[in-house]
Each structure stands twice: as structure tokens, then as C-alpha cells.
Design a protein around this nucleic acid. Structure first.
Length: 300
DNA sequence: GCGCAGGTAGAGT
DNA sequence: ACTCTACCTGCG
């Protein structure tokens, strides 16, 4: 178990912001699936408890959650006269741009088009369960069954040190391209992907054929990576930018979706001030997106 | 019952 | 270059 106090980090906000689709929240307990990994985290305000060893935390999750980046520095650059953006960053002050797996992001955002977040989640859950690898792990009782998770580091520490209290957990990894490339193009309609099924199957085929090189794209600049991603059937401007932002951490990417377009029309009639936020427009995009998606109801 | 949801490809001006 | 439309599906 790793305990940390972290400013500007809210799993709830990150989970609701539509950048990752495999995070679940039960009270203050969060379960995150990423690639073939699984992590549980308890969070109370800035206080976080990561249920993993220090090796896995330092080597994987710290980077995954982008914990070494100072998001206060991004927020400090916001124009004080921009009332709207200030409201957005105040509302989503725990936002972060996760560093997620490239292939997982390609599939996730192929599925995201003309779709809603609830169904995107279910689609991804479906393909993981049907085509992902089943993982069986033993974890400490966390939380105890039939009990509201309560922030209690001492108790958790105790449970971790008593192996007989452990329980078996099963989950599915995200399917590798090899698990999908041989399917008929409409096979994933069974997973509720609808017409997006062929996009995902073809993308998997491109990767396995070597026609689309994930590792090469990973090393490319934003411009080149986006250009490359646009070659994939079903990937357009917006989806390419989402993949660049969440799968490659190219913070220049500024995905223009319906919510952002709406916000632009209402608050940035002369265009978003890209000069001021050069190099990290994507971070600002995510604050705006989250505010448009979840922030409005607060002010009714 | 009907429009919409983190769009895109393909056809038509 | 631009505009228009079909596209799976479930939820309000």
C-alpha cells in the first residue's frame, strides 16, 4: 500500500471526464483497469491510498496518473480576465491527463464516436470480457464485503499483512490487436459496438499486419502521429486528437467535439486563444470538456 | 415515437 | 473545398 497526499488530483473528476472508460467508483474506493493491470485506490480529498506495491506504483501508476506533473502551473497560466475558463478550472481542479495505452485509446475513441459515455463504457467492458485475457489475482480484503469503504489506513495495513484475509479477484485485460484481427468485421456488433465494429477490427488488422506501427507512432511528433492515425479507417480529426492527447500525451492536441464546439460558440467567438496556451491546449480542453459535461447542473 | 450521444466515410455539389 | 447523409443502439 502506498500512501500519498496529492494536490490537484481527483479520481472522481478524472473518471467522469470521459478520458478513461474502465474506472469504477464505490464511495471513496476507485477500481482502475488499464491494459492488463488492475488497481484500487481510496481517496479522501488530497489523501490517497494506492493498493499496490511501491515497485508497481513507482514504475507504472505514478506515470499513468501523471503525478509528477504540476497542474497548478497549468492553471496559473489561465488568463485572469477569462471568467469562463476560470470557472472551468475551479470546477475541475483535480483534472489530469492520464498517460494511457495507445492501442486501448485507439479502440476506445473509435467506439466513442456518435456514442454516449455510459454505452462506451459498456462496449469496452463487453469486448474486454469477450476477447481480453482473464486475470486471476489474490488481493487483501479491500474493502470488506458488505461494508461501506471507510478511509482507515491502519486497518488496511493490517489487512494487507494477513494473507489469509485475501480474496480472489477475476477481471479481463484489454484485448490485444492479435485477439481481434482475425474476426469478421461485424463480429463486435455482439459487443454492442454497432457500425463501429468494422473500425475496430480493421484497426486491429492494420496493427497485426504491420501496416500500422504502434511503436513508431509512439515516438512521432504530434503532427506526424496525428497524420498517421488519420490513415486508420474510422479515425477522423476529433478521434485522432483524443488518441494523441490521452494515448500519446501530446498536450497540443485539442479535440473538437460537440461539447467543445458549443463552448467555443458561446465563449470564444474569435477562436480559442491557442497562442497563450501553446503546447498545453489539450489540458485546457479537458477542463472545458469536463465543465461542459458535469459543471452546468451546479448552477441551475 | 423521435432525437441525440466525445464523428466519420462516401457521395454529391 | 465544402455540405449532406447513413450509420448501430439505448436512453430521455
Amino acid at each position: 500500500m502506498i500512501e500519498r497526499t496529492i494536490k490537484h488530483f481527483s479520481l472522481e473528476q478524472i473518471g467522469q471526464s470521459g478520458q478513461c472508460f474502465r474506472m469504477k467508483q464505490e464511495g471513496n474506493l476507485f477500481t482502475i483497469l488499464a491494459g492488463d493491470r488492475r488497481l484500487q485506490v481510496r481517496q479522501e480529498g488530497e489523501h490517497c491510498c494506492f493498493y499496490c506495491g511501491s515497485e508497481e506504483f513507482e514504475h507504472f501508476w505514478k506515470e499513468y496518473f501523471d503525478l509528477d506533473t504540476d497542474y497548478a502551473a497549468y492553471m496559473a497560466q489561465v488568463n485572469p480576465n477569462d471568467a469562463y475558463l476560470n470557472r472551468a478550472i475551479a470546477f475541475g481542479s483535480g483534472m489530469r491527463i492520464l498517460r494511457q495505452d495507445l492501442w486501448e485509446m485507439i479502440v476506445s475513441f473509435l467506439i466513442s464516436q456518435q456514442n454516449n459515455i455510459v454505452r462506451i463504457r459498456r462496449c469496452i467492458e463487453n469486448i474486454c470480457e469477450k476477447y481480453g485475457e482473464e486475470k486471476v489475482i489474490r488481493v487483501p480484503q479491500c474493502p470488506k464485503e458488505n461494508q461501506e469503504p471507510i478511509w482507515s489506513p491502519e486497518e488496511d495495513q493490517q489487512l494487507l499483512s494477513t494473507p489469509e484475509e485475501s480474496r480472489e479477484i477475476r477481471y479481463h485485460s484489454f484485448p490485444a490487436p492479435e485477439a481481434l484481427c482475425g474476426l469478421p468485421e461485424d463480429a463486435l456488433m455482439e459487443c454492442n459496438l454497432g457500425y463501429r465494429s468494422k473500425y475496430v477490427v480493421r484497426a486491429a488488422r492494420s496493427v497485426v499486419d504491420g501496416e500500422f506501427d504502434l511503436d513508431a507512432v509512439f515516438r512521432m511528433s504530434y503532427r506526424k502521429a496525428k497524420e498517421e492515425l488519420l490513415r486508420l479507417f474510422g479515425v477522423g480529426e476529433k478521434v485522432a486528437d483524443c488518441i494523441c492527447l490521452f494515448g500519446l500525451h501530446h498536450l497540443q492536441a485539442f479535440p473538437m467535439d460537440t461539447h467543445i464546439k458549443q463552448a467555443m460558440a458561446a465563449h470564444y467567438k474569435r477562436g480559442f486563444p491557442n497562442r497563450r496556451y501553446r503546447g498545453f491546449q489539450g489540458v485546457m480542453q479537458q477542463y472545458i470538456f469536463y465543465y461542459e459535461l458535469c459543471g452546468k447542473k451546479e448552477y441551475i
